[in-house]
Amino acid sequence: MRFITLAAAGLATLALASAGLAFAQEQRPAHEFGPEHLDEPEGGWSFEGPLGNFDQNALQRGYKVYREVCASCHSMKSMSFRNLGQKGGPFYDPEFPNPNDNPRVKALAADLTIPAIDEETGDEEQVPAKTSDTFPNPFKNPAAARASNGGIAPPDLSVITSAREGGASYIYSLLTGFRDPPAGLTVNGGQHYNVFYPGDTGSQWAGDPRLKPPGGFLAMPPPLKADGQVTFDDGTPSTVKQMSKDVATFLAWAADPKQETRKQMGVGVVIYLLIFAVVVYLSYRRIWAKVEH
């Protein structure tokens, strides 16, 4: 009997010790996340935490960066122009509860043309987009997207912050993480070195494999290269960091456009449940008061 207990206790100690050591070492292979941690913009993200919210100005600036820079390569198939004017969206205006009436959203849609069929002649033509249209795709088809980007199609950005470990911080880090490769690291043509890209530099590193540089190579050239590349309407200086932060904010909203409603509702639901719990607990005490249990 003693033996079983001892053996079992030994086993438990081993398991716990390994778990402890694993956490203490906090092993994260260098190639998984680039340098130690992802970068975060100064001041963090306004929308993080259970009560955080999107900053509408940041969303508007972010949309502009997406539209003027990223949209030439990346589609956002799940987004329609009307989404921009929905509650919690970049151009929401309480005066226009129906985003299809919102003049700013209408104008943003009409800025762009989309392919359509002329009902009279059956010919393909380009017409201005309407609020109900989805964001136009920069490429006619996936093959064209690959052909223009060195064989790798740019991913759709509709839910990109949910699709990458690190979310908005990853997008921000990726956009600000392009560096000149250190000596000893060969970068193939059409590839770009980024310290945060979750790739592997091992095969192209000439030095000690234990000291291989963090990050990896991707087919996207640095999209945000110079301060002032996009002019912000609200006068915010458009540094590369600011543009990266704002476009990451916009993408985080696009992936989770109901966040504001969700959190507001959540506060109400949880408070309601807690009050209900107290009431039911008191009735429980009362009902059981006369029963020995």
Partner: peptide
């Protein structure tokens, strides 16, 4: 009433 109380706590965590 006892199950009800537990269910409400569970639903709170769920929420």
């Amino acid at each position: 009433v006892k199950d009800g109380f537990a269910i409400i706590l569970f639903l709170t965590m769920f929420a």
